[in-house]
Design a protein around this nucleic acid. Sequence first.
DNA 1: TTGTGACTCCAAGTCCGTG
DNA 2: ACACGGACTTGGAGTCACA
Lengths: 83, 83
Amino acid sequence: MILREIFAKNVRLARKHKGLSQEDLAFESGLDRTYISCLERCVYSPSLDAVEKLAAAFELEPYWLLMTPAEQEQSEMAEEDPA
Amino acid sequence: MILREIFAKNVRLARKHKGLSQEDLAFESGLDRTYISCLERCVYSPSLDAVEKLAAAFELEPYWLLMTPAEQEQSEMAEEDPA
DNA sequence: TTGTGACTCCAAGTCCGTG
DNA sequence: ACACGGACTTGGAGTCACA
């Protein structure tokens, strides 16, 4: 899978997970609504600046948005477990 | 630290680690020699396409290039330990 | 609420060279 | 082998109207 697609899916996933509309996310990240729409449909390959802004809006680390689901699970297992 | 800088440092590190010159890396990744120079000096914010090409040249996962040294160590500890 | 076409504008990215 | 410059083309960045 191409990196652009992985990113697109992660953005859509993270956005849904936060219960945000594209418009909400546009506001949070300071990007344009239609631009977000384009990213989620793989029209553009975003620059790292855009990746950074979205990650900040999601309160996630930028690299997380480039990980496949399998890689994300792996990295979650490495985290602290404050039972 | 801004994402662009993290990326720049990781590229330079990975390149040195592989013993490649900027010219070699340009050839391997299909990107321009001067562009690589710009990336390592934080002049540009690369698109995900460029990130992907460089990661492929390094035989690394793209997300690794966005991780801070600390995060990279964490993720390495999650890997198999074939001692 | 989102997708899409049309439209700017400028940074990304290439190619030429120099010190 | 690398930093850095100018000149150029491509495509990302950003906005609007409309289905």
